[in-house]
Amino acid sequence: MHAHDGELSAAVARAQEGDEAAFAVAYRLVQPGLLGYLRGLVGDDAEDVASDAWLEIARDLGRFKGDGAGFRGWTATIARHRALDHLRRQKVRPRASALESDVLDLPGPNSTHDQALESISTESALELIGGLPRDQAEAVLLRVVVGLDGPAAARVLGKRPGAVRTAAYRGLKRLAQQLGGAGVTDDGPRTLGESK
């Protein structure tokens, strides 16, 4: 599933035996995806939320059972709970900015398709994903950014695997439309605004 799962499995196992260097390795392997997921959930507060999540992860590491892939799911669950707490405190919707602003960030309509895809920035990607309905955005992030498989993502979200798979599919389809619509000029009436 994920390129570093074997390495992560070993690091987690050693960390659970008390090896703090191994814990640092696990942190480095997991944090990028976790932070990307949290950015999609809470935007600019992602780093604070991630910090809270890691305190809990460090504290409860002994409780965890599983391999590297399981560790990604477990940590994503913890991070998600922290993010939802955060959002509850803030009383704001987890959705990122409106899609209209994304259009401005994307390459202009005259660029080619390839350029549109290659030049997409982290911010643009996250805002595009954040522009999806919440369930689709989370499903896409867990799958694409965190690197979870369908059942693991479903467990993180507390939903049935089929529902999560459908949400991820729809989200990716919508993103494909948006990315494609941004770069292809002769693509008929479809535009970013409509595909939203």
Binding site: S124, L172, A176, L179
Partner: peptide, 14 residues
């Protein structure tokens, strides 16, 4: 392909 693209885009900024 799309997932790789998105993944790379999101993680690149880390």
């Amino acid at each position: 392909a799309l997932e790789a693209l998105l993944s790379a885009a999101v993680l690149r900024g880390h």
